[in-house]
Design a protein around this nucleic acid. Structure first.
Length: 1041
RNA sequence: GCCGGGGUGGUGGAAUUGGUAGACACGCUAGACUUAGGAUCUAGUGCCGCAAGGUGUGCAGGUUCGAGUCCUGUCCCCGGUACCA
C-alpha cells in the first residue's frame, strides 16, 4: 500500500505540476521533454512503444489521404459533425476528445462500410476569452488566436482522429467571415435585421453587455464586477418570426427528446387571447375638424367605446380652417392647437395622406393640376372628378397598371394638462386603372382603389367590412384619445373571475393612469423597481409587492369596474406587460390578492377547490359565475369567450412566445464587423458584395471603452467612408457580431470550404446536407443549436440551402468530471491535460478510456486508475501476437462472433462503453485459451481499429497484414456462429434460484425438467406437490410448489 | 416551485420482451515470478454466516410462477427552468 501510494503521488506530481507550468511558455519543447521521461519508464516496462507507433500511423494516414471526403463520389454520403472548438489558451480539455473519439469511431466504421464520410473540424475563434487574454498580455488577438489554433491542431492530430484536415475552417479568417457578413446582409435585405434600443445588463468592469445567464447575484459572472442596466441601440435579428417553425419542425428530425423539449420550452409558445379593457369613465373629446364626413367616420369607429366625440360648436366656438403643409403630424397638431387650452376636454387633431409607392402625390395638388381656377367654377363636380380619375389612371398605367400604396392617418390628442399623444396608422390599398362605378364625385379616388384588407372598393364594402378596413384606424384613434389596456392571457375562460388588473412598472400607462392622490406612490414604486436588476425582480419566491393607481378599468363583458394596480410580478417584456388578475385561478394573482385584500371570485368549479388557502388552477372543472358561459368546460369557455370578444372587438385569439429577438451587436473588437454604413441621406446601406469582406482592421488600441462604443469607433479613417448608394459621406457601423454568428453556418462551409464564389456550391450542399449526426454539449441547446437551425432555415427560405433542417440527428455527450466528481476547473487545479495521457500512455489509451468510462451521454468522473486499466488491455492486445496458432475452436469462434455482434450494435446505439467491454472479454478469452487463429485476430483488429487505430494497425502489420486496416471492410458477424451448443439453464423453485444446469441447446421441457429434478439441491424443495412448471427454452425452468 | 433524468457492490458501471443481479474495469486479499515495474500470471472478492443457508438493486406497499425492470405512494441526488399571465 505504502509503496504504490508513493509512486502514484510521484506520477501525479510529474503530470500535474511541473509540466503544467512550463507548457504555457513553450508547448512543443515540453512535449519532447515529457516524452523523454516517459520513455525512460517504458524501457523498463512491457508496454509497446506507443510514441513511435502513434507517430508512424498518423504519418501513414496523412500520406495516404484516406480520411479526405470526396465531393464527386458515387458513394453514399455520410456527414458526421462535432461542435468545432473555441481554441482557448488553456489548450484541449479531456472533455473534447470524448465526443470527437465517439464520432470518430462511427466515422471509421462508416468508411469501412463503404460510405463517403465527411468528418470535418475547424475553429470557432472569435470571442471574448481571446480578447480578454490578449488585453491582459498586451498582445494582438490575431496572434493569440493563431498560436492557440496551432496548439489545438497539434493536440487533436496527436489523437489520431480521422478528421478531414483539408477542410479545416476558421471563423476569424476573412475568407470565411466574408460569407458570415454576406449572410448577415441577407437578413438585413429581408428586413429581419433591425436596430432597436433595449435595456441590457452592462458589466462596468468588462465593459460589455451580458446575457442574463452571465449575471450572478447582480454581479458579472466572469469578473465579479458591478452590473447595471443600460439602454443601448443594438442590431437585432428577428428569430421570433421563425418561432413556430423552430418548434413544429422538430417533428421532422431525430433529436434526443430532452434536447427537443428544452428548445420547445425555451421558445415558450403560449396560446390564448389578447383582451382589451377600456378605462372606466366616459370621455368627451373635441374633434378639430369642420369636415362632416370625417366626423361621421370617427363617430362610426368610436361606436361601442366610451368616447363621445364633440364639435367646436358644442363648446360655443366656430370651426377654423388651417393651412395644410406636408408634415402630417404638424398639420394635425396645428389643428388641435386652435382649440386646446380653451376647453377642459382633450382635443383631437388629425390628418391623412394618400401615399402611392414611388409616386409623389397629394389630392389637393392633383386637383389643382387638373383644373384651373377659372375652370373650377365652370365645371361640374362630376367633370372635375372625371379629370382627376383620368390623372390617377395615367399614373397607374405608367407603372404597369397597378400601384401599391396606403392611407396614412395621424392623430394628435392634446390633453387639458398640455401633454399630447401622437398615434398613426397605415391602411394598405392597391390602385389600378379599373374604375368602380358610380364615381364618388367628392372623393373620386375612392372609386379607383381596393382596400388590401378586404380586397374591395370602399363603396362595395358592407358596414362590417368597413369596420375591418378601419380597424387599425380605430385602434390608433382610440389609443390617442384614451388608451385601452391590452392584456394577454392563456385562460380567457376565467375572464369573469377578473377582480383587478396589473401593469408592469415599465408600462407606459402606469404613471399616466395614476390619480392625483396615488401618483406619488406609483412614481416611488416605479423608481424602486427600476433600480432592481432582472435577477432581483425574477425571484418568484419573494413576497409580491405592488401599488394601486387609483384608476379603474371596465370589464369588457360585465361592464364592472376593476381596480388597476402596478406590480413588478408582471413583466414588461412578456405578453403586453399587463395582466388581468384572476386570483381564484392563478397562484400569483392569488398571493397578491391575499396580501392586498382584493376579492377572489371563483369561475371554475371543482371538488378540490379550496380558495381559502390556494388558487384552483386545475382545468377539469366547469365554468360558474360566468353568465351565458356557465357549465361550459374550460376548453369550451376559452373558445366561447374568445369569439365573444372578437365579436365585440374587445379581443382576439393570440399566441405569445418567451423567445426574444436575437441581440446581434457586440461593442467589442474581436468579432466580425457588421457590414453596413450609415448615410444621412440613405439611412443604413449594405456594403456591396464585391467589397466584402469588411476586414477587421488590425489595431493596437482595441480596448473596450466605457461609453459603450466599440473600439472600432475610435478609428476615424476606417469609420468615415463613402456611401455605396449615393457616394456621399457616411459612417461605418462599428459594432461587431456575437460569437454565435460564425458558428451558425460553419457546417455549410465544410461541404465546400475553399469556394470563393459562394459560401458553398449548390451541388456540394445538395450532396452532403443535412448532417446525419451532430453531437454537442447540452449547454448549446438553447443558443447555438437554436440559432443555427434558425439561420439555416432562413438561408433555405432565400433559396441558398436545399434543406430546411440542417441536422438529421442531434445527440449530446456527458461532461467529464474531476476524480472527486466536481467540475474540472483551472482554479481548482484538477484539470487533466490530454497531452499528458497521450505522452505517457499513447493516443489509443486516451481514446479507449474516454469511451469506456461510462455511458456516452452521461457525466462521468475521470479516473487515473481507469486509464491504466485500458492501457493494460491494449498491452494484452499487443501480446496476442504470442498466441497465434491455427486453432479455431468452436468456443473461440463463437466468442468472436458474439463480440462482433455486440460491438456492431453497440456502436450504432452509441453504447461505446459496453462495446469496449465486449472486446475486453474477448481478449480475456484468447488469453485464457493462449491461442488465436490469424484470421480471427485480423477480424478482431478490423473491429478494434475505430477505437484504437494505432495499436490495431501496428499489430496487423506485425502479424502479416499488408494493407492499412482502414482500407478493409467492416467485419460482418454470423448469427449462426454466435449460438452456443451448450447453454446454462437456471432452475428455480417458487422463483428462487436453486441450481443451474449445463444442457445441450434446444433441449425440450421433459429433458430439462428431469435433469432439474435429479439435482439434489432442487429435489429437496420439491417434496410437496408441484402445482405448475414454467419453462423458458434454453433459459430456465421454475417449479411452483 | 415546475419540468426532465436518475438512485444497483468499496468505486466507475453491466443487465433483449419481466426470466441466473453485479458483465467489463478499478480497488482490495492471498499466492507465483521477481529485486521493484504504474509489470505479468493464478485464485478470490455484494452483504451476513465457520457452514448449511439466509439476504440483497433508495424506502414502503402492490401485480406476477418470477420484478433492478411494471403499478401506487414516499424520500434523496443530478440537470434544466424560474413571477412567462
Amino acid at each position: 500500500m505504502g509503496k504504490s501510494s508513493r509512486t502514484f503521488l510521484g506520477f501525479k506530481y510529474r503530470m500535474g505540476t511541473s509540466f503544467a507550468k512550463e507548457r504555457v511558455r513553450n508547448p512543443l519543447q515540453n512535449v519532447n521533454e515529457r516524452a523523454t521521461v516517459a520513455l525512460s519508464y517504458l524501457s523498463r516496462s512491457m508496454s509497446y512503444n506507443h510514441s513511435d507507433i502513434d507517430k508512424k500511423w498518423q504519418k501513414t494516414w496523412e500520406e495516404a489521404k484516406i480520411f479526405e471526403a470526396k465531393n464527386d463520389s458515387k458513394k453514399d454520403p455520410y456527414y458526421l459533425l462535432v461542435e468545432f472548438p473555441f481554441p482557448s489558451g488553456a489548450g484541449l480539455h479531456v472533455g473534447h476528445p470524448r465526443s470527437y473519439t465517439a464520432l470518430d469511431v462511427i466515422a471509421r466504421k462508416r468508411r469501412m462500410e463503404g460510405y463517403n464520410v465527411l468528418y470535418p473540424i475547424g475553429w470557432d475563434a472569435f470571442g471574448l476569452p481571446t480578447e480578454n487574454y490578449a488585453i491582459k498580455t498586451g498582445r494582438k488577438p490575431q496572434d493569440v488566436t493563431k498560436e492557440n489554433i496551432d496548439n489545438f491542431r497539434r493536440q487533436l492530430k496527436s489523437l489520431g482522429l480521422s478528421f478531414d484536415w483539408s477542410r479545416e475552417v476558421n471563423t476569424t479568417d476573412p475568407a470565411y467571415y466574408k460569407w458570415t457578413q454576406w449572410q448577415f446582409l441577407e437578413f438585413f435585405k429581408a428586413g429581419l435585421a433591425y436596430k432597436d434600443t433595449i435595456a441590457i445588463n452592462w458589466c462596468t468592469s468588462c465593459k460589455i453587455g451580458l446575457a442574463n445567464e452571465e449575471v450572478v447575484n447582480a454581479a458579472c459572472e466572469r469578473c465579479g464586477g458591478e452590473v447595471e442596466m443600460r439602454e443601448k441601440e443594438q442590431w437585432m435579428i428577428a428569430i421570433t418570426k421563425f418561432a413556430d417553425r423552430l418548434i413544429d419542425d422538430l417533428e421532422t428530425v431525430d433529436f434526443l427528446p430532452k434536447i427537443a423539449k428544452q428548445q420547445v420550452d425555451w421558445i415558450g409558445r403560449s396560446e390564448g387571447a389578447k383582451i382589451r379593457f377600456d378605462l372606466g369613465e366616459v370621455r368627451e373629446v373635441l374633434v378639430a375638424t369642420g369636415n362632416e364626413a370625417k366626423l361621421e367616420r370617427n363617430r362610426f369607429v368610436c361606436e361601442g367605446s366610451n368616447i363621445a366625440l364633440r364639435e367646436a360648436v358644442d363648446y360655443g366656438m366656430h370651426s377654423h380652417e388651417v393651412n395644410e403643409g406636408s408634415d402630417l403630424v404638424e398639420n394635425a397638431r396645428m389643428k388641435a392647437q386652435v382649440y386646446a387650452g380653451n376647453v377642459d376636454v382633450p382635443v383631437l387633431g388629425m390628418d391623412s395622406a394618400f401615399v402611392l409607392e414611388g409616386v409623389d402625390m397629394d389630392p389637393a395638388e392633383v386637383r389643382r393640376s387638373v383644373v384651373t381656377e377659372e375652370e373650377e367654377a365652370a365645371l361640374s363636380q362630376r367633370e372635375i372628378a372625371d379629370r382627376m380619375l383620368a390623372h390617377y389612371k395615367g399614373l397607374a398605367e405608367a407603372r404597369g397598371g397597378v400601384i401599391e400604396g396606403h392611407w396614412h392617418d395621424v392623430f394628435v390628442c392634446i390633453f387639458p394638462d398640455g401633454t399630447e399623444k401622437v398615434t398613426e396608422c397605415k391602411r394598405p390599398i392597391q390602385l389600378s386603372t379599373k374604375v368602380h362605378e358610380p364615381v364618388d364625385e367628392f372623393f373620386p379616388i375612392r372609386s379607383l382603389y381596393i382596400n388590401r384588407k378586404t380586397g374591395k372598393y370602399p363603396k362595395e364594402q358592407t358596414e362590417e367590412e368597413t369596420r375591418v378596413e378601419l380597424e387599425d384606424y380605430r385602434v390608433a384613434l382610440l389609443d390617442a384619445l384614451q388608451p385601452t389596456i391590452e392584456v394577454f392571457t392563456t385562460r380567457p375562460d376565467t375572464l369573469y373571475g377578473v377582480t383587478y388588473m396589473v401593469l408592469a412598472p415599465e408600462h407606459p400607462l402606469a404613471l399616466q393612469l395614476a390619480t392625483d392622490e396615488q401618483s406619488a406612490d406609483v412614481e416611488t414604486y416605479i423608481e424602486a423597481s427600476a433600480k432592481k436588476t432582472d435577477i432581483e425582480r425574477g425571484d418568484a419566491a419573494k413576497e409580491k409587492t405592488g401599488v394601486f393607481t387609483g384608476a379603474y378599468a371596465k370589464h369588457p363583458l360585465t361592464g364592472e369596474y376593476v381596480p388597476i394596480w402596478v406590480a413588478d410580478y408582471v413583466l414588461m417584456n412578456y405578453g403586453t406587460g399587463a395582466v388581468m388578475a384572476v386570483p381564484a385561478h392563478d397562484e400569483r394573482d392569488f398571493a397578491f390578492a391575499k396580501k392586498y385584500d382584493l376579492p377572489v371570485k371563483q369561475v371554475v368549479d371543482g371538488d378540490e377547490a379550496n380558495l381559502d388557502h390556494e388558487a384552483f388552477i386545475a382545468k377539469d372543472g366547469k365554468l360558474v359565475n360566468s353568465g351565458a358561459f356557465d357549465r361550459m368546460t374550460v376548453a369550451e369557455g376559452i373558445a366561447g369567450i374568445t369569439s365573444k370578444l372578437e365579436e365585440l372587438g374587445k379581443g382576439e385569439k393570440a399566441t405569445t412566445y418567451k423567445l426574444r429577438d436575437w441581440v446581434f451587436s457586440r461593442q467589442r473588437y474581436w468579432g466580425e464587423p457588421i457590414p453596413l454604413v450609415h448615410c444621412e441621406a440613405c439611412d443604413w446601406v449594405p456594403i456591396p458584395d464585391d467589397q466584402l469582406p469588411v476586414v477587421l482592421p488590425e489595431i493596437d488600441a482595441y480596448l473596450p471603452t466605457d461609453d459603450g462604443e466599440s473600439p472600432l469607433a475610435a478609428i476615424n479613417d476606417w469609420v468615415n467612408t463613402e456611401c455605396p448608394s449615393c457616394g456621399g459621406p457616411a459612417k461605418r457601423e462599428t459594432d461587431t457580431m456575437p460569437n454565435w454568428a460564425g458558428s451558425s453556418w460553419y457546417f455549410l462551409r465544410y461541404t465546400d470550404p475553399h469556394n470563393s464564389e459562394a459560401f458553398a456550391s449548390e451541388e456540394a450542399l445538395k450532396y452532403w446536407m443535412p448532417v446525419n449526426l451532430y453531437n454537442g454539449g447540452m449547454e448549446h441547446t438553447t443558443l447555438h443549436l437554436l440559432y443555427s437551425r434558425f439561420w439555416n432555415k432562413f438561408l433555405h427560405d432565400r433559396g441558398h440551402v436545399p434543406v430546411s433542417e440542417p441536422y438529421h440527428s442531434r445527440r449530446s455527450h456527458g461532461l467529464i468530471l474531476a476524480e472527486d466528481g466536481s467540475k474540472m476547473s483551472k482554479s481548482k487545479g484538477n484539470v487533466v491535460n490530454p497531452d499528458d495521457i497521450v505522452t505517457n500512455f499513447g493516443a489509443d489509451t486516451l481514446r479507449m478510456y474516454e469511451l469506456f468510462l461510462g455511458p456516452f451521454s452521461e457525466p462521468a468522473p475521470w479516473s487515473e486508475n481507469g486509464v491504466m486499466g485500458v492501457k493494460r488491455f491494449l498491452d494484452r492486445v499487443m501480446r496476442l501476437e504470442e498466441f497465434i496458432a491455427n486453432d479455431a475452436s468452436k468456443e473461440l469462434t463463437s466468442a468472436l462472433h458474439k463480440m462482433l455482434k455486440k460491438v456492431n450494435t453497440d456502436i450504432e446505439s452509441m453504447s461505446f462503453n459496453t462495446a469496449v467491454a465486449a472486446m475486453m472479454s474477448y481478449v480475456n478469452e484468447l488469453h485464457k485459451a493462449k491461442s488465436v487463429s490469424k484470421d480471427s485476430l485480423h477480424t478482431f483488429l478490423r473491429t478494434l481499429v475505430p477505437f484504437a487505430p494505432h495499436v490495431a494497425n501496428e499489430l496487423y502489420e506485425k502479424t502479416g497484414g499488408n494493407e492499412i486496416l482502414e482500407s478493409l471492410s467492416w467485419p460482418e458477424f454470423s448469427e449462426e456462429l454466435t449460438k452456443d451448443d451448450v447453454v446454462t439453464i437456471a432452475v428455480q423453485v417458487n422463483g428462487k434460484l436453486r441450481a443451474t444446469l449445463e444442457m445441450d441447446a434446444g433441449s425440450n421441457q421433459a429433458k430439462v425438467e428431469a435433469a432439474a429434478r435429479a439435482e439434489e439441491h432442487v429435489a429437496k424443495y420439491l417434496e410437496g406437490e408441484v402445482k405448475k412448471v414454467i419453462f423458458v427454452p434454453d433459459k430456465l425452468v421454475n417449479f411452483v410448489v
